[in-house]
């Protein structure tokens, strides 16, 4: 079976995952949302299709943090793989939905702004999507004969 991971390191990993994910997926989007409201109160309603709200930030922040923390607590077990991959997929969707698929519009100072950045959004989501795919593949490779080098060719 896999390498043994102590409960102490799991709990420390879970605490670190909780702090990091709360900062990245809740605190940062919250301040971005607050800055947008200060810029133009009507800007938030114009931006996206109404998804960009505190409820959305808190909901998905909790989902992503919960999945990553559970993945860290079950580190070394097979069940951690879908939990961590689920966290990456949720973070990729959160990023996509938060910026309305790379099309962001708002009105400020009598001007209408429309920002389009789909290629950049894909680049932003790529590490999360690749990590979601890499986890299960690495797990399967480490635990099957197909992933190991041939013993008669070693040395």
């Amino acid at each position: 079976m896999g390498e043994y991971v102590s409960w102490r390191s799991r709990i420390l990993g879970a605490a670190f995952a909780a702090a990091l994910n709360i900062f990245v997926w809740v605190v940062v989007p919250y301040f971005l949302y607050s800055d947008l409201l200060k810029l133009e109160p009507t800007a938030v309603s114009a931006a996206g299709s109404g998804i960009f709200s505190l409820d959305f930030i808190y909901t998905f922040g909790a989902i992503i943090t919960g999945l990553e923390v559970m993945g860290a607590l079950t580190n070394g077990m097979a069940v951690s793989v879908p939990l961590i991959s689920g966290g990456y997929i949720a973070s990729a969707y959160f990023t996509y939905a938060l910026v309305n698929g790379g099309t962001f519009a708002l009105e400020a100072a009598g001007l209408k702004f429309a920002l389009s950045f789909q290629p950049l959004l894909f680049l932003l989501m790529l590490p999360s999507l690749f990590s979601a795919f890499k986890g299960p593949i690495s797990f399967l490779l480490e635990r099957t004969e197909a992933g190991r080098g041939a013993s008669d060719l070693a040395g």
């Binding site: 390498e3 590490p127 690749f130 890499k134 593949i137 690495s138 480490e142 992933g147 190991r148």
Partner: peptide, 17 residues
Amino acid sequence: TEQSTAGRSLRGVSIVI
């Protein structure tokens, strides 16, 4: 256990990305 070649390749791709 030592990581397989495919596993190291995936890690390398992840770092490059």
